[in-house]
């Protein structure tokens, strides 16, 4: 029982880590970044190369890959999305196409097989309430909590963060007050990319780096976002807890095979009851009905 709770919590934090970058970007710029999965894999792939091909020390490799992935996010906005801003159809197709294009590119560059594995930060494990938990998973818990706190602090107490929130609430009014919407959107994509990379580097040591992870992560992020409500941090946390715990429960009592069914059922259920998600507060969504 304790084990289920602890692993459920770890699972939930993993969900939250995966999703937070996606929802941050969406909440601020209104861009659904379908290249999120590609950023995620890119983060891990780059740090693997820095580590193994170039022989960088692990902490440096991590820092560089996070920065580079964030930079990719900003580039994606500046050179692609900037030109099609406001045309949702084009925005979606552009991120969707680039996401799949880059994932497949990684495959072509040889990202298959068992060689691609990031090392754990610290080896070993710890006994917690009678359950063995390895340090990597503990780090994930701490990292998840720190990131969520950081994001909360960032959006409530820093100038850039406040600008983010201003743009998210009303772009035109924010423009009048001198917030640059394009710069903010670019930053939001950059941060979304960096967060994806951080999540990848923390989570990937538990499994292999694979192209499929990119698609898988995007589905999970979408599912959490849809159920929780796209631009609400609270929604991400609650939906992550729901998915994280219910998956462990289903896997323990029924079979691990049914975990995806839980996800599908949750999505369909939430769409029927509250289409904008548990904590979705998009005025347009409901009031335009």
């Amino acid at each position: 029982m304790a084990g289920m709770l602890i692993y459920g919590l770890i699972n939930s934090i993993i969900f939250a880590l995966i999703t937070i970058g996606f929802t941050l970007t969406f909440g601020i710029s209104g861009i659904a970044n379908f290249a999120h999965g590609a950023f995620y894999v890119a983060g891990a792939y780059i740090s693997w190369h820095l580590l193994n091909s170039l022989g960088f020390p692990y902490p440096l490799a991590i820092a560089i890959s996070v920065l580079v992935t964030g930079f990719f996010g900003a580039i994606l906005y500046r050179f692609v999305l900037f030109r099609v801003r406001g045309v949702i159809l084009s925005e979606v197709i552009a991120t969707f196409g680039l996401g799949i294009g880059f994932l497949e590119l990684f495959r072509c560059l040889g990202l298959t097989g068992y060689d691609y594995k990031l090392p754990k930060f610290v080896d070993g494990s710890l006994e917690l309430l009678g359950v063995y938990v390895d340090y990597q998973r503990l780090i994930i818990i701490v990292l998840g909590a720190v990131l969520l706190l950081f994001l909360w602090f960032f959006t409530h107490h820093t100038k850039t963060g406040l600008a983010f929130r201003a743009i998210a609430q009303d772009e035109h009014t924010a423009l009048n007050f001198g917030v640059e919407s394009d710069r903010t959107a670019m930053l939001s994509l950059g941060m979304g990319g960096a967060l994806a990379a951080i999540a990848a580097i923390a989570i990937m040591p538990l499994s292999l780096i694979a192209v499929e992870e990119g698609h898988h992560i995007l589905i999970l992020a979408l599912a959490v976002g849809i159920v929780g409500g796209m631009e609400s941090t609270m929604g991400v946390i609650v939906a992550s807890l729901i998915f994280g715990l219910s998956q462990i429960i289903v896997a323990t009592y029924l079979s691990p095979n049914y975990t995806m069914i839980v996800m599908l059922a949750a999505i369909i259920l939430i769409l029927l009851i509250r289409p904008s998600g548990l904590f979705g507060k998009f005025k347009e969504l409901e009031e335009r009905i």
Partner: peptide, 13 residues
Amino acid sequence: RLRGIYFAMVTFA
């Protein structure tokens, strides 16, 4: 009932 972007996300997933 939702905006187009939600439709895109759900159809993708």
